[in-house]
Write a protein that binds this DNA or RNA. Sequence first.
RNA 1: GCGAGGGUGGCCGAGCUCGGACAAAGGCGGCGGACUUAAGAUCCGCUCCCUCAGGGGUUCGAGGGUUCAAAUCCCUUCCCUCGCACCA
Length: 903
Amino acid sequence: MSEEGYDHTAVERRWQEAWAEADAFRTPDDAEDPTYVLGMFPYPSGKLHMGHVRNYTITDAYARYRRMRGDDVLHPMGWDSFGLPAENAAKERDSDPRDWTMDCIDTMRGQMESMGFGYDWDREITTCEPEYYRWNQWLFRRFHEEGLVERRAADVNWCPSCETVLADEQVEGEEERCWRCDSLVEQRELDQWTLGITEYADELLSAIDDLEGWPDSVREMQRNWIGKQEGSVVEFEVGEAPTDSGSGDDGEPRTFGPVEAFTTRLDTVFGATFFALAPDHPISEELAAEDDAVHEFVHNEADPDGDEPNGVETGLTATNPATGEEVPVFVADFVLSDVGTGALMGVPGHDERDHAFARRMGVDVVPVVAPEPDVEGADPEVPDVSEGAYTEDGVLVNSGEYDGLTSAEAREALTGAIDSADFHTQYRLRDWLISRQRYWGTPIPVIHCDDCGPVLVPEEELPVELPEFVNTTGNPLDAAEEWKHTTCPDCGADAVRETDTMDTFVDSAWYFLRYVSPDLEEAPFDVERADDWMPVDQYVGGLEHAVMHLLYARFATKAVSDMGMLEHREPFTNLLGHGMVQLDGEKMSKSKGNTVSPQRIVGEYGADTARLFMMQAARPDTAFDWSEEGVRSTHRFLGRLAETVRSFVDRESEPAGDDDPTAAYVRSEVDAAVAVATENFDDLGFDLATREAQSLVATLRGYREYVDEVHAPTVERGLQVALRLLAPVAPHLTEELYAELNGEDAGLLVDAEWPTADVDTDEARRRRQLVENTRDDVRNIVDVAGIEDPDRVDVVVAPEWKHEALAVALDSDADNLVGELMGRPEIQRHGSDAADYAKDLQAEREALRPALSPEHEREALEAAAWLVEREFGAPVRVLAAEEADDDVASTAEPGRPAIEIVE
RNA sequence: GCGAGGGUGGCCGAGCUCGGACAAAGGCGGCGGACUUAAGAUCCGCUCCCUCAGGGGUUCGAGGGUUCAAAUCCCUUCCCUCGCACCA
């Protein structure tokens, strides 16, 4: 192992125990407003994977950083432990979902501990425990009281493989596949429980604007999902055509009454030349029962997923409420029953899809909106819509008294003028269907009574606990006869329990509130403390939950807030979606077989290496490739860090190095590192922060190698800083080295104070820039001039008056800068040099930037002189302008010293 | 199709919010040097082209424009990724 390694296993275990002993991550209940750092709690699938490691390293590093900054920190962990995999696993091995889940939790908790994640385990929550899920049931009751729970018969998404229904959010893609198992989702009609998320649609949408700490992508996805559309509803009278008694019987033509359609383009109603119904619209179904062609279409031809808009003529007509004309009615497969009202007015002139359909079915195409004329007052030119629709807004034509109005005006006017029309806002968002026909979830606390209907289980009888698991093909709750049969809470008659369980997203919709008071027995959470501690300051998780979990959590928070239980209306102030861990550009996944096991990495290199490698590899929100080479390199760095600290601690006698300019350079680099890394930690830029810390260690090592004797206080401070800057990311080794450096009595590094540095980061950057530029210039000269072996390098700082001139120039708004400068005696007295420099300044005027002060510039250069000496093996003199030859000094400018290299 | 985010030197990736220090941070890879018996590790440089003292030229998907000045602002266009999608 030698310098390369250290006994990470022993070191890591030692400090994990020490932290536990010291209760280092405990958040006391009386904490006032701790910084709440939270990673999305995992489903306990059995083993930690790299995605987990990345996620939880980010939260842990940030939590540790905030703690060192002096904050109280709340950093809890729990288990999203209900769900189908446990049930499937139990079926496979003929055991119990609970046992399997608890085993997984134990394993994963152990792995988290071995990663050194600092959680307040006293706040651990496990959603599959009655102590947790009773509050799902309790909240279900409260939601019910608020009128947010409904039971309705509905066509639902049914996953045949999972044997359960799915929420809309859980159906993915055009083909409609199950989010979990990828099976094709079917439709079934079932009585299901829903939560009234649509009541909050408007607020869920508008409040997105204020979620400034969230990624734009997530905000946009939520906006799209909610899908607010403002428009109008309007009715069309539908019936058999008056001139043709389609049934052949005598008597009046049948009417089907008014049928409502939703449109965002009521301005085009004069061009509505047909009307279309969804195949499963009640009228379609009625017609299908008596008309073979419609029946054939509805049951066999309709292809809602196809590209072509298909339809069948019904023989009915609808009355266009604007023109009074009778237009044909179709049953068409592009009309979807769950969009709008399941019926639409077709305007082929101004909608591409309607246009395609109309051409296919031979329906008239009438343009009623024209592009707004360029010239005010000119007559609009009616667009040619024979080949394609004109879909933009414009001004109305062929629309009777509405001609000339803009589209927006016409929508307003027509909605007012048409009796049956009204403004209407519709959403794509549906109520949240939470019924699942599965065992391993929260039982929905309802009892079905023949007389009373569905009755809520009274509060005092909660929780309704799951019965013993039975391995059966259907829903095990249905098979649990003894559990299922009970009596009605209202009338006492024989009754049966609801056998559906809740969607597991219910568990995660409010779990962040439970951490506040995980053991509370009277309520789901302590209201006062939640007011103090919420919202979560920094939430971190995968963006696969951009819509589902994050939307449900926002909904639950708002609903709970409206119940008077919380004063906050949003759960997560800042959201970070961490990027993927990839291998050769591909997502790691079990199915691809390209996973890297965190356990192996921890065993081989240690948790610190794994953590530091991941954090330095990329910004936390971007994907990055796992690289074994990178891991080794990180591991070597930690070895060097250890060696650097230990060789300092083990020094035989106090080094006699002076506090010379070189030491001053090191000190300024220490300060710069503190300033820069702190900034980076603040905005989760762990890659930049750790890089800064690593380069500080390199500086310290370079210093140690260059001088015979280091200035001990300077190196000591450098090491103290380096350990602290790395502590959040590589906590074990830094803790070990901290103890070695400071002795056993110094306390723990987790509790140590974050270092401060009294430097301005801009100033530090300017200083680094000056040094770097100067070194570059020296190299350039040596190279270009072909200097083999320099004897001496003189670096000459610009004279005071040039700095003054620059300052004046920066400040001046005079037209003639040269005049202004030369008007100043202290500048003017430098004669033609002054005039030349003034001209330079004038020429560069717009691009001038402030430089370091002459003293700072000189200090910085003197401090960095050793770098040049080391590189070129020649002594370096840093001179004031007055100390150098005039012809050399004259080329010096602020920020750009003159350089003279003597061979 | 709609929406969002991107396209930077061999690769990865900063910078682009507030145009000037940008030939453009950092890392990786490659090259040279120090150390070493050697390798490894470590350390110091180089890595668009030209250059006789710090200079010049051509670059930031493509094409225009604004400006004294653009990787950075505006317009057009191409390509990539991700969401949503026969949404009325």
